[in-house]
């Protein structure tokens, strides 16, 4: 997963550019946080715990959101 994500150009405003395909995306502030955590090599569950703690949401909700985000990354060809 890391190899493709590490190649992305990600701005502080959440604009994401894939230099291999020319595709660009916009992610929300939360999405940016998850994306950066994935790029740092954090595990999905670790990220979900962090989100649950920061935003005071149920851990299961955070896990589902992170999983959906990761599925979206895969569907856009940003992870394998």
């Amino acid at each position: 997963m890391m190899q493709k994500l590490s190649r992305l150009a990600v701005s502080a405003e959440g604009f994401v550019f894939n230099p291999a395909s020319g595709d660009s995306f916009q992610v929300s502030a939360t999405g940016l946080r998850v994306l950066n955590a994935l790029r740092e090599g954090q595990a999905e569950d670790q990220i979900a715990h962090s989100l649950a703690e920061t935003y005071q949401v149920e851990l299961e909700d955070a896990r589902r959101d992170v999983a959906e985000f990761c599925a979206a990354l895969k569907s856009f060809g940003l992870t394998s």
């Binding site: 550019f17 230099p19 291999a20 395909s21 020319g22 595709d23 660009s24």
Partner: peptide, 22 residues
């Protein structure tokens, strides 16, 4: 290397972006 982001009705590039697809 480039990707065409938009083309004219004749299929000619109007906007594009440089890419590095190895």
């Amino acid at each position: 290397g480039i990707k065409k982001l938009s083309v004219t009705a004749q299929g000619k590039i109007w906007t594009g972006v440089t890419v590095r697809n190895e």
